[in-house]
Amino acid sequence: MPELTYREALRSTLVEEMDRDRAVVLIGEDIGVYQGTFRVTADLLERFGPKRVIDTPISELGFVGAAIGMAMLGLHPVVEVMTWNFALLAFDQIVNNAAKIRYFSGGQVNVPIVIRGPNGAGVQLSAQHSQSLEATFAHFPGLFVVTPATPAEAKGLLRTAIRGNDPVIFLENAALYGMKGEVPDGNFALPFGRADVARVGKDVTVVAYGRMLHLALAVATQLLEEGIDAEVINLRTLRPLDTETVVSSVSKTHRAVVVQEQWKPFGAAGEIAATIYEHAFDELDAPVERVTGADVPMPYARSLELLAVPHEGDVIKAIKRTLYKDGIKG
């Protein structure tokens, strides 16, 4: 298997899908001449021409909406939002049009659009450029919400997104673009709604997605020395959510910690915890723990920013609480 960066995995998938199907077009700000803010679309303008790699004005509402119209007419547009923060300007288009047109038309048209770009915080971009919006979008029926954590997932999930018939919110992470990993060749695709057991363990289930997967895996390795054997579930997609894999793991370990980068109230971790309570209440030996970002707008100062995002220590403490090894309970 070749080793690719997360960025190369995304880019090569775009190339492969555009070579395969002329219905696949790219649209967004500075994706062509500028080569993409994070260079995911580097050289694609030269390769596919301006009709298929469409540079737009700074008009998120306009180009996301236009891409939805393209999708209704049979194209498969892949929209780049420079960061997901800017997609809030297109929120009405995503929520009121992309997610609902199929339903309110009685199934007369599909809206096969992929909207992709970096989500999350971590590089001192402060309040308006550092937020994790996955739960916001996962709230809406009609959307799929995808959170690739590795180069292989970037490729496999993007292919499934492009070949599907529905709007996909594709949440990348700026901190992962340079990450390297083995990526299967050919038409490798990963199905939505199928989580990955990233590490098998028996003492506690740690549920994570996106960048937080790597935090969870690092903690799991570290805790082995203390004789704690954690199982790590990588969700891959939030909508649909693979309830079965999560519940089956919790039924084995009887303890669960959910890790998310976003704010705690009304977030993904709360939803996953509730799902565990609904399906596996009797299996639990401890309350489900949530590890989340701090409930504040993201500060600029590096020292404060570090305090605002989840750390290994937070996850370790949460795991120990579920095991009553935190020195307080039990």
């Binding site: 909406g65 939805i68 007419l73 547009p77 288009q93």
Partner: peptide, 24 residues
């Protein structure tokens, strides 16, 4: 291709649809 309830919300759709007709 539809009646829409959010004032103005269909204008970008129609514009992208028009592009598609020429693209095809």
């Amino acid at each position: 291709y539809g009646g829409y309830g959010i004032v103005g919300g269909h204008i970008p759709l129609a514009t992208g649809a028009a592009y598609t007709l020429r693209y095809l």
